[in-house]
Nucleic acid binder design. Structure first.
Length: 520
DNA sequence: CTAGGGGTATGT
DNA sequence: ACATACCCCTAG
């Protein structure tokens, strides 16, 4: 790796692309150059044409009444979608065609790293007078790592647990039981500051180490006890100890012990169990309940579905051979570590094969099975190759953006390049409006073209000066104010002129990208 | 009851 | 952070 990595800050702090440039580069949208890749362009047009014809996947439609403006979703608050025990994914990014696809690993997530909400100012939406906010002295806003709350090493910043959060956690445990972290997290009765279920567990472990400490007595005993004992902490608890005891619970109005969930404790499968399971399957097939009842099968506390799960996991090939579908890979799929596709079979013992009657006739002819666990239909998380700003990888992002339900719920981050095409001094170019209740707009010499409470609508151009005063993305993101809408021109604005002057015969004609937006 | 398709808590 | 054992829900 020669030279330092380009980081997201480099993207954010680049010159504002809607400010006048000495020599605007030619852009695909202006027809000056042809697309190098045919299929991606076609793909893009597919989407554009759907917008024109109104034919579209209902899921992806975010078009308001006039069919023109797209209201971009506001970033949801973090706890609402973090019940999966994982940090939230990076939001999709719409980029202009010439914009290199951002390396998602380097992009800060606005949603995650948004500084804590201020007491609120413009939340009401009334079109009251906007209060100017001092802008940074320099024209280009510099977003420092401090502002973004991103430590240098890329980890998310420490987020100290408040008294309120801890109290809510304990109340939640009292209500739902130890271990029901997601329930607690999702409950509207309790409020947490950007926590995941894992965070809750970790915090609880801090408060009650005797419950989760590996060297402590509670290990592995939860299946049998209905409550955990809350021992009074050592009387010499250190000043910064966060440990809690019954006294602390009492202060929160919690009487008695904290309940546990009924979840059985984990218990790994012994080799004997696996072998018995295999024999049981050979005898009873997929009648898991029968296997469970078989006299010769003496498993550790298992349920019938446990046997299914284990068999599916331990003997995927046999599972598949009996006509059962492999368990879809958990999302995100585990990274490919280069294991051969039959490594599971290879790990099988000779006894296994014997029990199945599948011992290979000859060791010299190993049978290589195709990977069974990754059906092609399963959408894979796109991977952006390091340093490859390929068009296809951009489209890969677009594909997931439009077809992934989870991503549909994600905030949309507009790459600043999406406005690049509007730079071109083509008079017929439809206007892009950026609407928002941000008081940022009132700065500089940007003039409102119309006052439309609670939003003001602006064109990116000052037609008199030829310059534009759109705030930089850095300024926006540093302002705590994300209630912005980007109103793109309707595709009809492009299409209708072509129709009216006869360059396009009918609306079923499929124009080229150049024809559509190049206006040449 | 089981299959299917996950979701997630837990141990490491 | 990861793998996986256990859980959950629906449809058949």
């Amino acid at each position: 790796m020669a030279g330092r990595l380009v980081t997201s800050l480099d993207y954010i702090n680049r010159p504002n692309p809607v400010e006048p440039l000495p020599a605007p580069p030619a852009h695909h949208f202006h027809g000056s150059s042809s697309l190098h890749t045919q299929d991606p362009g076609r793909l893009l047009l597919d989407g554009l044409t759907r917008d024109l014809t109104g034919e579209s996947n209902a899921k992806r439609r975010r078009i308001d009444g006039d069919g023109q403006a797209r209201d971009l979703p506001k970033p949801p608050s973090r706890p609402g979608d973090s019940g999966k025990g994982r940090r939230t994914r990076l939001p999709p990014t719409l980029s202009g065609l010439y914009q290199p696809p951002p390396n998602s690993g380097l992009l800060p997530s606005i949603k995650v790293q948004q500084p804590p909400k201020q007491p609120s100012q413009t939340a009401g939406g009334a079109a009251g007078p906007v209060t100017p906010v001092p802008l940074p002295a320099s024209e280009k806003a510099i977003v420092t790592p401090v502002q973004l709350n991103v430590p240098k090493d890329g980890r998310s910043a420490r987020n100290k647990w408040s008294e309120q959060e801890t109290a809510d956690l304990l109340r939640g445990v009292a209500k739902f039981g130890v271990g029901s972290w997601t329930k607690i997290l999702k409950s509207t009765d309790f409020h947490f500051d950007r926590r995941t279920a894992l965070d809750l567990k970790d915090r609880f472990r801090v408060c009650y180490p005797e419950k989760y400490g590996t060297s402590l007595s509670a290990k592995g005993s939860s299946a049998h006890q209905s409550t955990i004992s809350i021992k009074a902490a050592s009387p010499v608890r250190s000043a910064r100890s966060e440990r809690k005891d019954a006294t602390d619970l009492a202060k929160l109005g919690i009487e008695g012990d904290l309940p546990t969930t009924k979840r059985r404790s984990r218990h790994g499968y012994s080799q004997a169990e696996d072998e018995a399971l295999l024999r049981g399957f050979a005898k009873h097939g997929k009648a898991w309940a029968l296997i469970l009842q078989d006299e010769t099968f003496r498993p550790h506390q298992r349920k019938a579905t446990d046997l299914r799960d284990r068999f599916r996991q331990r003997y995927p090939e046999e599972y598949a051979k009996s006509g059962l579908a492999a368990r879809p890979p958990v999302f995100p799929p585990p990274p490919d570590r280069g294991l051969p596709p039959d490594h599971i079979a290879a790990s099988r013992t000779a006894e296994d094969r014997e029990a199945l009657g599948t011992a290979p006739k000859s060791r010299d002819a190993p049978h290589v099975e195709p990977p069974h666990s990754l059906p092609l239909s399963h959408p894979k998380r796109p991977s952006v190759p390091d340093g490859v700003d390929s068009f296809s990888s951009l489209l890969q992002h677009e594909y997931d953006f439009f077809n992934n339900d989870e991503l549909d719920a994600q905030p949309v981050v507009l790459g600043r390049g999406i406005l690049d095409w509007a730079l071109e001094p083509i008079k017929a170019k439809p206007t892009v409006h950026v609407r928002g209740n941000s008081n940022l707009w009132s700065h500089g010499s940007l003039q409102a073209h119309s006052s439309q409470a609670p939003f003001a609508t602006f064109a990116p151009f000052d037609t008199n000066t030829g310059s534009t005063m759109l705030p930089s993305l850095a300024t926006i993101t540093a302002s705590n104010d994300f209630d912005l809408q980007l109103e793109l021109p309707s595709m009809n604005d492009y299409f209708n002129p072509l129709l009216s002057d006869g360059r396009i015969a009918s609306s079923s004609y499929f124009p080229s990208l150049d024809e559509l937006v190049g206006q040449n």
